[in-house]
Computed example of a mutant assay.
Amino acid sequence: MTTPRTRARNRRGEGAQLRDEIVDAAMTLLEDGDGQNVTLRGIARQAGISAPSIYPHFPDLDSILLAVAQRAFGILERELSAPDDADPVERLRAICTAYLTFAEGRPHQYRMMFGAAWNAAQALDRSPAMADELSVLGMGAFEIFRRTLADCVTAGRSTSADPFRDAAALWVGLHGFAQLQVAAPLFPWPPELRDSIVDRMALLA
């Protein structure tokens, strides 16, 4: 478990740094798997600040967790990136592999991104002002799937007539596979299952 630190007082103009450190603290608690401490007090303790010091930067816990989810999806988006000049099918396979690697390597962040430690729908009910930010959460990562599948169609490598719909189906398949591997680690998963999910959901020729 990461030890909370004592933080020196910010100089004038360093408020943005403190905001980032608050998000860092929340992510550290999630990575440690210590979900019970992902509270305003727990985050403040991890960041080495008092709980009231959070409020100039975040009005509540939901806004912190939204910032955590945004950062996590940003990391995922970077890890999904692949050279545009690569064969589109190989690029799509590499993206799917990177997605599952992210889910396996950052399990607590991944679960939070998809509702385990933070329910975005409930947060929206509590804070309707989050609607605009929540509506685009994860869309950068999804767009990589959609664009790459569209490239497969253009190259005559996929029979998809609707890359948006089929990219969404592919995402659902990968997410389900990632979750089931955690829930049933002793199940004899076929070694070619990942490629089969990609082939079927992306309608690869």
Rank of each mutant, 00 (worst) to 15 (best):
G42Y: 03
D84W: 10
D20L: 15
A116E: 12
S160E: 06
E14A: 14
E133F: 03
E77M: 01
N119V: 14
R71F: 04
Y55A: 03
F73A: 00
L100V: 13
R5N: 01
G48D: 07
I197T: 02
V68E: 00
R200D: 09
L65G: 01
P88Q: 10
R78Y: 04
L18H: 00
F164I: 11
T2D: 08
F187L: 15
A129N: 06
P59I: 11
V38Q: 01
F187K: 07
L124D: 01
A44Q: 06
Y55G: 01
P188M: 09
A26K: 01
G33M: 07
R45P: 04
F142S: 11
F102G: 02
R106H: 14
L40Y: 01
A141R: 04
Y110H: 04
Y110E: 00
R11A: 15
T6D: 02
E21H: 10
E31W: 06
A86N: 11
A205E: 06
A82R: 11
T3P: 00
G138K: 07
G74Y: 04
D162V: 05
A121S: 14
D151K: 03
D62P: 02
N119I: 14
A169C: 12
N37V: 06
D84K: 13
D162L: 10
Q109A: 10
T6K: 13
L30Q: 02
A121G: 09
V172I: 15
V182K: 02
C152Y: 01
P107I: 12
F187N: 05
P59D: 08
P4S: 06
F177P: 02
V23P: 04
M201L: 12
Y110I: 01
M1W: 05
E77Y: 04
R11F: 15
P128L: 11
R45G: 03
S81T: 14
